[in-house]
Nucleic acid binder design. Structure first.
Length: 276
DNA sequence: ATGCCTGAAGGGTTCAGA
């Protein structure tokens, strides 16, 4: 099963990039963030091209900002949009949708930005992460939490730690909140696979930042042990950041070793060989 | 460089993003 996550920065503007990318990479499950579309507009725009490609979808959006979705061609069940008991700013925002796809529980998340350390939005970000953690603690079975977490887990995940001193995305409380997700436990499967590589998922549009590879790694796939044990590949699709009309984020792609029907199922130990 | 791009809503500009 191939699972991908992509902050598309407006699915409407990104349609000429998204549809060819689906055809090229052929992911089974796609988590989208910053769709920036209300659900009826999402359906009007995407129902036909997604259905033609075999995808069902669960969108949870709003008209102007935010917005998340899960696309799946391995089943889509138990959809939960939003976090009913989560914090708002001041109102609830469309930042999470969960669904079960081929036996895998999938969360598409768009963590609040935080804007400025110690601002009201920053405290909202921390409260939102705590609420997400409480929600995830109630999950059992194979789980992936995919999306734009708006936190660089370590200094290696920003192009220049000094440039971010005193800014959001790198502060100790944000990293601690992310750490409490990892303690559930969840594993950061891209960093697990590329422990010493320069890996970014976001580059500012301005000043040739992508061209100079001056970015951050803030889009993550976090997997429960049962799911992480099945990861056979995990990488950032930098190609999708190139060319005309890209998002400022690149997709993250993760391949899981699954049953022939695409179901993840329990990890079965290999049969013991008879000795002689 | 103090938002250098990009997108959305709505109106002739402002807010948000990281």
């Amino acid at each position: 099963m191939r699972v991908a996550t992509w902050n598309v920065n407006s699915v409407k503007q990104r349609l000429p990039r998204l549809l060819p990318w689906l055809d090229e990479r052929r992911p089974d499950v796609v988590c989208l963030q910053e769709t920036k579309l209300a659900d009826d507009a999402f359906t009007a725009l995407l129902a036909e091209p997604l259905t033609a490609r075999g995808y069902e979808f669960a969108a949870h959006g709003e008209s102007r900002w935010n917005g998340v979705a899960v696309l799946s061609r391995v089943g889509l069940a138990d959809v939960v949009p939003g976090m009913p008991d989560g914090p708002g700013f001041p109102h609830q925002e469309a930042r999470v949708v969960a669904a079960t796809c081929g036996g895998l529980r999938v969360y598409s998340v768009y963590v609040p930005n935080g804007r400025t350390p110690d601002s009201a939005h920053y405290h909202y970000k921390l409260a939102w992460l705590a609420a997400l953690r409480s929600r995830l603690a109630g999950e059992d079975g194979p789980l992936v939490v995919c999306g734009d977490v708006n936190i660089a887990p370590a200094d290696a995940d920003v192009y220049d730690p000094a440039a971010y001193a005193g800014h959001t995305h790198v502060t100790a409380p944000e990293r601690a909140a992310l750490g409490r997700l990892l303690d559930l436990p969840l594993r950061d499967v891209v960093r697990d696979r590329w422990p010493d590589e320069r890996v970014f998922t976001y580059w500012d549009y301005r000043a040739g930042m992508f061209h100079q590879d001056l970015g951050m790694r803030i889009d993550l796939v976090l997997a429960s042990p049962a799911a992480a044990d099945r990861v056979v590949a995990a990488w950032v699709d930098r190609h999708a950041r190139k060319g005309t009309g890209p998002s400022d984020h690149a997709p993250v792609v993760v391949d899981l070793d699954t049953a022939p029907d695409g179901a993840i199922g329990p990890v079965v130990p290999p049969p013991s060989r008879p000795r002689r």
